[in-house]
Design a binder for these strands. Structure first.
Lengths: 154, 154
DNA sequence: AGAATAAGTAGCGATTCGCAACTTCTTTCA
DNA sequence: TGAAAGAAGTTGCGAATCGCTACTTATTCT
């Protein structure tokens, strides 16, 4: 861990943070995941300023994590829905939320996410090895292309 | 999904975002995870403004995700190290990075994280059911306290 | 002693945030 | 059918934050 100095500029983390790296992005995402799809709903529930919300929604649409559609039955209304790309942020959001529960609020914070099939709570989001072991502080290191292919072949 | 309207105010996500919800927080965290522990190292590698970096490090220390210590051998130097609380943000960081790789940059972005035991790459960070199935778009819903205890007893 | 290094701090212009009021289009209601 | 209300923004403006550069302080090297 830490032997390889990653080139920070070419990494995908900055790209992700450009979109999601502000105080509202994940909250909007979660609200949408929670069934809020209209501008006014989001604005009132989150308490976000209207211009900021408008700006974020536009950026989300621009970046393809939300789709904007007007409602035929009521042409005043606009529906914002998560795309697959937007839904793919769920693990990051859940990880952040679980971290907050464990280390900040301390409480399990209902309602919780459960598997719809058996109603059981989801696991802690974790970094797992290829065979499913949870990897902790000393279990990880950075590898360059050559190293990995070599190991995969063995 | 979305039937239960979560009380957004009492959730732990805002608490997490208060600390990590800006463009630099996760980048500093990753740099630290990557073996950068000094002010000047972080500043030069990330290209972050000095006052902002100082401010973020102070906040991280204040919130207990980093520990600040002076180096006995060279008393000019200060070492910043991740605490367990800070390390616990790794799943969120990796999830974000993997999302960026998959949906933004498109490339696997070396170096990659591998299991130190067998050198194999880590899995995709995902939301898993109690028995380890990856849960997707339609596989989740929100549950209130009563629902969950009921299911757990069965 | 003098120069260099590490870790900040201070000043200041530029950007972003957040609040409140206003606009536009559409729907409902009397 | 005309007036009021609802939905989705937009605009203006003061406050806070960001980012760049220069400066400070303490320590170490030569």
């Amino acid at each position: 861990m830490g032997q390889v100095r990653e080139n920070l500029a070419e990494c995908s983390l900055p790209a992700a943070l450009e979109l999601m790296g502000d105080r509202w992005a994940f909250l909007i995402l979660r609200a949408s995941f929670n069934g809020l799809h209209h501008f006014e709903e989001l604005q009132q529930e989150l308490g976000i300023a209207r211009n900021i919300l408008a700006n974020r929604l536009a950026r989300f649409v621009e970046h393809g994590i939300m789709a904007r559609a007007s409602v035929p039955e009521d042409r005043r209304k606009i529906v914002y829905n998560l795309t697959d790309k937007g839904f793919a942020l769920l693990p990051a959001m859940v990880a952040l939320r679980q971290w907050g529960e464990r280390w900040e609020t301390g409480s399990p914070a209902f309602p919780i996410l459960v598997d719809v099939r058996d109603g059981r709570p989801i696991q802690q989001v974790a970094v797992l090895s290829h065979d499913g072991r949870a990897l902790g502080k000393g279990d990880l290191h950075w590898a360059l292309p050559g190293d990995v292919e070599e190991q995969a072949a063995s």
